[in-house]
Amino acid sequence: MIEENLNNQDRFLKTVKEAIKASPGGYRKNREELFSRLSQSTIDSRLKKIQNRTRADQLKLLDLLMEQAEPINLRVMPVKNLQSASESIKELILDKNPEWGTVKKVAAWKHPLIDKLSLGDALAKYDIPVYQSELKSTDDLPAGKQMIREQIFESFVGITAADFCIAQTASLVMKSHPNQARAVSLVPSIHVAVIELNQIIENLGEFYFLQKWDPIQKKEGLTNCMTLISGPSKTGDIELIMVHGAHGPCELHLFVITGET
C-alpha cells in the first residue's frame, strides 16, 4: 500500500508542477530557498532580548495577558508562590461542583511544577482523589493507558502546566509529552493551568520565532501535537450568541506563580 501511495504522490505532484508551469507567478523558488531564513546576528539579538527580560518586563507581560484574557473568559490569577497556588486550587476544587454526577475527582499531569503543588495530599482529607497521568514502564501499556483515560473521563477538574503562555492572544501552549495526557486539558469540565511568570512571552510572532530559532525549542520541535488554548470552549452557533462550554472545558483558570516573597 505504501508503494502504491508513493506512485499516487508522484503522479499527483507532477500534475501540480505542470499547473504551476502553465501559470507562472513571480514567487517560484529553488528547493533550498523555500523557507525563510534570518542572519545569525539577527537571531542572537532577538533571542537575547527575549531571554534578558527583567522581572519588571515580565510583570508588564502579565498585565497584558490579564487584559487580553478577560474578554475571552480566561481567568488569570497571579499567586506569590507554589504554596498559595496549591491553596487556591484546593479552594477552587472544594467550591465547584461536578457537571456530570456527584463525586469529585481530579486529574493532573505528571509534571515537576504540578508535583510540587502536592495537591494529592491537600485533597486527601476531603476524599477527593487526584489521578496523576503517569505510565509506569512496568505497566502493561494498553491497559495502563486505558485506566488513565477512564480516570480522566471521571474527573471534573483537570490540572496541567504549559510550555509557554502568549500574552497578546492569551494563549497557553502545550506540546505533547509523555505522561502529560492531552485529555486532561480537554475532557474535564474545568481546566486549571499553572505556569511561572517567566513562561510568558509577548505575542505569536515571538512564539514562532522561538520555535524556529531557539536551539532548545528547535531541537524539541513542535512535537506530534501542539495545541494553543485561548480561553474555555465556546460557541456562537445558535444565533451568534456566545455560550461557554460547548464541548471542551466550561471554565479555564490560569495560575501564574510570580515568585514574590
Binding site: Q168, A170, S171, L222, S230
Partner: peptide, 18 residues
Amino acid sequence: NLAGYVSYIGGPALDSEI
C-alpha cells in the same frame, strides 16, 4: 484575536504518550 483552539498535528501519538 485567535481561535480558542489551534492544534498542530504532525503524526500519531508516540507509544510513550498516554
